[in-house]
Amino acid sequence: MNLPILDNQTARRVFLDAHALMERPIGPGRGAGLAQLITRLGFVQVDSVNTMARAHDLILWSRQNAYRPDALRALNDRDRATFEHWTHDAAVIPAEFFPYWRLRFARDRDRLRARWKNWHGAAFHAEIDTVLRRINDHGAVHSAEIGEKRAEKSTGWWDWHPSKAALEYLWRTGELAITRREGFRKFYDLTERVIPPEHLNAHIPEDGVIDWACRSALDRLGFATPGELVAFWALITPAEAKAWVDGALKRGEISEAMVVGADGAPRGVVLWPRTLARAHDLGDPTPRLRVLSPFDPALRDRKRAERLFGFSYRIEIFVPEAQRRYGYYVFPLMEGDRMVGRIDMRADRETSCLRVRALWPEASISWGQGRQNRLAVELHRLLPLAGCDSVAFADDFLK
């Protein structure tokens, strides 16, 4: 059977359109408009590194330049339009998706209970009840308020004391929820005090969760393999995703296609027929140069980013400095539908200056004055998010 083929440029545009990166980064940046953006993306990864801006803030800003960090805190902590939990990593997720996480809570419960009992002994089980009573009686807590003793030996989980392990267990299994952050410190409360009742009290059967996980992931990826459907939410198993794909193909709900990579190699995927029908009508992406987060949803799957964009990226935090090819935490640069480089910059908040230390263009990219001017414009747009007033380039920044 001859399958439809998406050439590399068309595939990039389908993918970027699904990730809200084809259009200009306009929008209110707060309230209902921000909630709609997060729902469109599915989730926003949360990370504490703040060399210029935190990952979740840059992800949202790169799509709505009016966004400021207090808007996400208001949406999550006050409006309860989102909640924080786990996908492939810690993330902010639309509150309406909470019922689907019950399957993850249930599957994690026995696995984590046994694991943490092995780490912390029988005391861990008693701490679960102690932590719940403390929060029920006295309200939200952060981890530093729970327990005083550290584990007697290294556990691989930062030597958590039993109470901290109990707190994390209760969050991972859905009995507690993050009610707010102060700085970047999480405060936990009973889930029924945090999640709106209409979402808290909704229950979805396992087959409904599997169907939703696959459909909603395909919506947000544009095209995918069964493994990529699994990885998107990290809610279901490979066998469950494969069974869903097989069934959806038999029912004629989805189609098979070949996607051509940056290296010219085709790869089999599935997609919605409507995606295939409109793939060549997307038009050109906005030509502006964008700074992206290292954890941007379009790039977080490093192997897919390399296949689709020819962009090999990894964070070199744990690589010895002498062995680093780039800075330990550099920001990808996108122009139109191409990755054009990566930039090492930090917000010097003592002098209120965004300092560019190095920039590495991709091998096929010529970094002329026009592109440098577009970068300067983008960095000046970034200043309010970085908390800076000016930009300074090191004399030898261009590598």
Rank of each mutant, 00 (worst) to 15 (best):
P238N: 10
D137T: 10
D246N: 09
R215V: 01
K149A: 15
L235I: 15
P226F: 08
E192V: 12
L190Q: 12
E182P: 06
K153N: 12
P196M: 11
L176N: 00
W171M: 07
N136R: 15
D246Q: 09
A241Q: 00
Y169L: 12
K153T: 15
G247I: 04
I195V: 14
W233M: 13
S216W: 05
K164A: 02
E148F: 04
E148D: 03
I128F: 07
D137M: 01
I204K: 06
G139V: 05
A241E: 01
V194N: 11
K186T: 06
V245N: 00
H161M: 09
H199C: 14
W160Q: 06
P238V: 05
A243E: 02
I178Q: 08
A217I: 01
C214W: 01
E198V: 06
A234K: 15
F232V: 07
D207I: 04
N136K: 14
A231W: 10
A234I: 08
V141A: 06
D246E: 15
S154D: 14
F184I: 11
I135N: 00
G208L: 03
T173Y: 10
A126S: 13
H203K: 04
D219H: 04
I178K: 09
L235W: 13
P226T: 05
E145F: 04
D159M: 10
T191Q: 13
K186H: 13
S154F: 05
W244R: 00
A241W: 01
I146V: 15
R172T: 13
A126R: 12
H138V: 00
E192H: 15
W160N: 01
G227E: 13
V131D: 03
K153I: 07
P162D: 08
F187H: 14
V230A: 03
F223C: 02
H138W: 03
H161Q: 10
A151M: 08
A166C: 10
I135D: 02
R133Q: 13
E206D: 07
T155L: 08
T130I: 11
L200Y: 15
W171I: 07
W160H: 05
V230E: 00
V230R: 12
G147M: 09
Y188E: 03
D189V: 06
S163K: 14
I236R: 00
K153L: 09
P238K: 15
A144R: 15
R134Y: 07
N136A: 14
R193W: 13
F223I: 04
I178L: 11
V141Y: 02
D211H: 05
T225Q: 09
L221F: 04
A217C: 06
G222D: 06
L218H: 00
C214L: 05
W160Y: 11
S154L: 03
E175M: 08
W212A: 02
G222W: 07
A165N: 05
A177F: 12
C214S: 00
H161L: 11
R150C: 03
L200H: 14
S154C: 01
E228V: 04
N136W: 07
E168I: 04
E175V: 08
K186P: 02
A224D: 08
E152M: 10
F184E: 09
A202R: 15
T155K: 11
A239W: 02
A165F: 03
I210C: 01
T130Q: 09
F232S: 04
E192Y: 10
I135M: 04
V230I: 08
I210S: 02
P196E: 07
